[in-house]
Design a protein around this nucleic acid. Structure first.
Length: 561
RNA sequence: UGGGGCGUGGCCAAGCGGUUAAGGCACCGGUUUUUGGUACCGGCAUUCGGAGGUUCGAAUCCUCCCGCCCCAGCCA
């Protein structure tokens, strides 16, 4: 066995990578070229993440290249804002395209010349029918279509008409250029598809140079051919378009012969990815914007604190197949935790504070206790955490009448304060309503650092923050945007919106080391989850997002009880 | 009633005529633990949408049936 075939011979296996390996081995291609071809009409989202990882990932793995091409053939929908955000998002995910960003609009002139070529060959014609007539005459899924009355115009007449279309002589919708293929085909894409439509609109890049624009079908394969793409990878719904894709490649003097392969889309439970619906969420104020941390957009996930490696690993592990799927949202969270567990430094933060006074601790004294930054990474070092007489602990770490399995603090019970001391609860202070407002505890001076002085055990270790040193913060907790696996599966998807997808906590207490937190840098609030500073933070108002909670077996035990 | 796809445990997914039907997530037990986290160990499909057939042998080959998805934009 040769070991020299490199990583590509090992590595991931799926039907597309198998094809690539074979093509390379058998010399059908010298090196592979892929492309990621978004239409710049919206922000990239989870659905795109799969395509990006496949397009860029495969090129990378096999030593090929991947182009980033804006599929900008419809000037009525596309904007510069999206062209910029797409590049930013692809880079954030960790990929880089070969050379400059490409634009389908860069090929308009070539595409036009090829259209004239088809006309001369008698393979395309100008149709004067209205959109409605074309639709009616296309037939149905079960009945063949009927030929256009203009289908047999002479090449000269077609050429003249097509040139006049380009010259702007006709209004929108007056005529289209169609391929002459087969109006009776079982594949509706082959029933004389539209190649060009008249659109008197300003294009973000070509401005007013054109008033006819090529359709997706007429543009995509040829753009691939121009860029010498070898493997044009796309989702399943384009499977039916492949015969048409191939038809153009065969009938045009293209410089290369790309091949299209289709894989299944990524569907994740309890979320949506439809542009129209995402837009509605933003417009109707169900979320704060395209980068709301609950949004499945790349910007939203970035702000939420999802590391790009987690997204890449997720896609890798989901795999590439042709089967429809609905991935549980929890699977993605697993990879987020997995990455963050190794990377994120630990901090202590109390989300729902309960004051604790250490009655036998000297008033006015502060100790600086060392704490490990990341037990999973020795190189992360340690930091100092201040301890004093008054601290905060988590409200739900204390129970007055603890059930059997509750290990945490209760009256008369001793627990460890992480990196600090063993403390025992002596007294519960309540207000006039019976609400617990304060705990009075004693500490064991011998247990400094949290070490057991005499080998005695304690069943719980709590996180805490010194009251005098705490930073006040707002913390935002997120749950899935939708409460059903497939939003809208039975009716209106808006009815499936989870009303509790956002919980805002204020008055949270953070340990001082958190002042230095940077947005986008994940930290673990010990025992709680992974968090990151939000861009809404200001100099005197810290805001943190919970990226994902830690696994919580106590919550499960409780739920069962 | 047309064309194109897909059906392996709750969710993904290997498997390509001879394996005890990989692996991950989830779930259930247990060990370690100054995070009820992590890590580690163990459990979790006599069965591959169904029925026939071929074969010494089938998830893998053949036939029929069933279910699900996509297509009737001058969107991509």
């Amino acid at each position: 066995m040769s070991e020299e075939n490199g990583a590509a011979e090992e590595g991931l296996r799926d039907f597309i990578r198998d094809i690539v390996r074979t093509d390379l081995r058998e010399g059908r291609v010298q090196s592979i070229v892929t492309r990621f071809p978004p239409e710049p009409n919206g922000y990239l989202h989870l659905g795109h993440v799969k395509a990006i990882c496949i397009d860029f990932g495969i090129a990378e793995e096999f030593g090929g290249r991947c182009n980033l091409r804006m599929d900008d053939t419809n000037p009525t929908k596309e904007e510069h804002e999206y062209i910029d955000s797409i590049q930013e998002d692809v880079r954030w995910l960790g990929f880089e395209w070969a050379g400059d960003v490409r634009f389908a609009s860069d090929y308009f002139e070539t595409l036009y010349a090829w259209a004239e070529h088809l006309i001369r060959e008698g393979k395309a014609y100008v149709d004067d029918q209205s959109a409605d007539e074309i639709r009616v005459n296309r037939g149905t899924l079960t009945e063949p279509g009927t030929n256009s009355p203009h289908r047999d115009r002479s090449a000269d007449e077609n050429l003249d008409l097509f040139r006049r279309m380009r010259a702007g002589e006709f209004p929108n919708g007056a005529r289209v250029l169609r391929a002459k293929i087969d109006m009776a085909s079982g594949n509706i894409n082959l029933r004389d598809p539209v190649l060009y439509r008249i659109l008197h609109a300003t294009h973000p890049r070509t401005r007013d140079a054109w008033c006819i624009y090529p359709t997706y079908d007429y543009t995509h394969g040829q753009s691939d051919a121009i860029e010498e793409v070898t493997h044009s990878l796309c989702t399943l719904e384009f499977e039916d378009h492949r015969p048409l894709y191939d038809w153009f490649i065969e009938n045009l003097p293209v410089p290369s012969r790309p091949r299209q392969y289709e894989f299944s889309r990524l569907n994740v439970s309890n979320t949506i990815v439809s542009k129209r619906r995402l837009l509605q969420l933003v417009r109707d104020g169900h979320v704060s914007g395209w980068d709301d941390p609950r949004m499945p957009t790349i910007r939203g996930m970035r702000r939420r604190g999802f590391p790009p490696e987690a997204l890449r690993e997720f896609v890798k592990r989901v795999g590439v197949t042709k089967s429809e799927n609905l991935i549980e949202a929890g699977y993605l969270e697993h990879f987020v935790r997995d990455v963050l567990n190794k990377k994120a430094e630990r901090r202590m933060a109390v989300l729902n504070p309960l004051k604790v006074v250490i009655t036998n601790y000297p008033e006015g004294q502060t100790e600086e206790l060392p704490a490990v930054n990341n037990p999973e990474d020795e190189t992360a070092g340690t930091r100092i955490v201040p301890f004093s007489r008054e601290i905060y602990i988590e409200r739900n770490d204390f129970m007055e009448n603890p059930p059997k399995k509750f290990f945490r603090l209760s009256q008369g019970r001793e627990v460890r304060l992480r990196y600090a001391y063993f403390v025992t609860c002596q007294e519960v202070v309540k207000d006039e309503n019976g609400e617990i407002v304060e705990l009075r505890c004693s500490y064991d001076p011998e247990s400094r650092g949290g070490n057991s002085p005499d080998g005695r055990k304690v069943k719980a270790t709590l996180h805490w923050v010194s009251a005098a040193h705490a930073i006040d913060a707002e913390v935002r907790l997120y749950e899935p945007l939708f409460s059903t696996p497939v939003p809208g599966a039975d009716g209106d998807y808006l009815k499936d919106i989870n009303p509790e997808s956002l919980t805002v906590l204020s008055g949270c207490k953070l340990e001082p080391a958190l002042v230095n937190a940077e947005p986008g840098e994940g930290v673990q609030f010990e025992r709680q989850g992974y968090f990151c500073k939000d861009k809404d933070s200001t100099g005197d108002h810290a805001v943190f997002n919970r990226t994902v909670a830690l696994k919580d077996t106590w919550a499960k035990v409780q739920a069962k009880a």
